[in-house]
Amino acid sequence: MESQQDILANIKRRQFWDFVFALTGLMSLLFALITLITLIVDLSLTGVPRITLDFFTSFPSRFAGKAGILSAWVGSFCVMITTAFCAIPLGVAAGVYLEEYSKKNWVSQIIELNIINLAGIPSITYGLMALGLFVYQLKLGQSILTAGLTLGLLVLPIIIVTTREAIRAIPNAIREASYAMGASKWQTIRHHILPYSSGGIMTGVIISLSRAIGETAPLITIGALTFIAFLPTAPISDVPPFINLKWLMDPFTVMPIQMFNWLSRPQAEFHVNAAATGVILLMMTLIMNGGAIYLRSRFRKKMKW
């Protein structure tokens, strides 16, 4: 039988180690958060003063002070639109199929396993695939379309997974209520499943686009140019049918590539440009992710089944 004193000493000792462990945990968490803050502050201190209106309306230049990101942000914008057009319909459709239609058989198992594995495939191999397939086999060239398709495929798993999660949160009672009214499967999906899961799907779309906007390696691999001093063809023309899709086949650069280009030069003035581009990129991704987090929490609160 242990004495009361032994017990108390034993507890003191364990309380001490418990405290040490909690402190280590807190330090690890803080270290990660401080790294994030340091990164933001360091980048901003260098970059923010460089962000003027001219910076957005100038093409890159040999002179650091005159250079801007006009072609880069227009390029990023065009690539994002193409990515969204490619990934959203495909991803949502795949998500709907896997949750609402797929039966438990080997085909669906392969698809499921494959989606999990896609998350672990390095992004640069998507670029290699795109270079071989889109650029050379399909002769799409080093164009906005190739870039959009590449990034679209890259973020496809994110959209599929979030779509599935959103759909899975809808209770079966809703489906049964719809079928009980005589609705077909597709009607149930269109009138109930898709509207109710739209918040969750939106979250996935935003997260995937924020991932795509920062991607650099696969676009370098498909041969995106780093020095572009012109804009893609305007999407509107003065002759019928007035809408012009020629821009899809134009060469392009994007903000992360522009940043990389400036960063790889030895002169510090160009590093300032890189920092400024970095600030803009970082703000965009942080705002998009913040928006997604907000949307997700609001969606969770609103939907009380």
Partner: peptide, 9 residues
Amino acid sequence: IDPMEVRMR
């Protein structure tokens, strides 16, 4: 009293 002590007894 730490709950640990109680739970030890």
